[in-house]
């Protein structure tokens, strides 16, 4: 499984909060000024955010890919790069370790982690704190030796959970 940060979900969450508040406010504010304000600011902001995530749309043009495709593209290039470099590449697994600390997730699991910060999901469900120890990134070689899983640094969130469960049970 790929390791793609969930920036798309996060951007969409920001847009969701803006749009939700705009909908609520629209029930309390209902005159021509509101129409002017929404036409001039709220709608364009939401359209631009959508364009940022999904790429150029009818009304809004943007160079290059939307964030969702771009993250996928980068992930594919990283995989190809690592495969092309082979075991001789000093970089096998290096992307995992070099990702920003606050984000390290697969996009389809929407799991983010920030130090010991208590988390909740946008659906209002508490996300259990995963006991991911620091040594995952520091002692990568040991993991392979002990458990013979994927190459170090290529663990998915699911892999990590399996590893942690095995460690706990051993």
């Amino acid at each position: 499984m790929s390791m793609i940060p969930d920036y798309v979900s996060q951007v969409q969450e920001v847009a969701r909060q803006l749009e939700a508040q705009a909908l609520v406010t629209a029930t309390q504010w209902s005159d021509s000024r509101r129409k002017e304000f929404y036409d001039r600011y709220i709608e364009p902001m939401l359209e631009w955010i959508d364009t940022y995530v999904n790429g150029s749309s009818g009304a809004r043009s943007m160079q290059g890919m939307g964030l969702d495709d771009l993250l996928q593209f980068m992930d594919e290039q990283v995989s190809e790069f690592e495969a092309a470099g082979g075991s001789a590449s000093a970089g096998i697994g290096f992307f995992y370790g070099s990702m920003p600390q606050q984000i390290m997730v697969s996009p389809r699991t929407s799991r983010s982690e920030v130090q010991a910060m208590p988390l909740t999901s946008s659906n209002g469900v508490d996300i259990p704190e995963e006991q991911a120890p620091d040594q995952i990134s520091k002692n990568r070689t040991d993991w392979t030796v002990d458990y013979n899983l994927n190459s170090p640094g290529n663990f998915s969130a699911q892999n990590l959970r399996e590893i942690l469960n095995r460690r706990r049970n051993n």
Partner: peptide, 24 residues
């Protein structure tokens, strides 16, 4: 409407400020 919306459409939010963790 958005093909990129993820199936569970959930993102981790900080309990303090309610923002996505990157934007906390």
């Amino acid at each position: 409407e958005q093909p990129s919306s993820h199936p569970n459409n959930a993102v981790a939010l900080c309990l303090g400020c309610g923002r996505p963790v990157v934007a906390c």
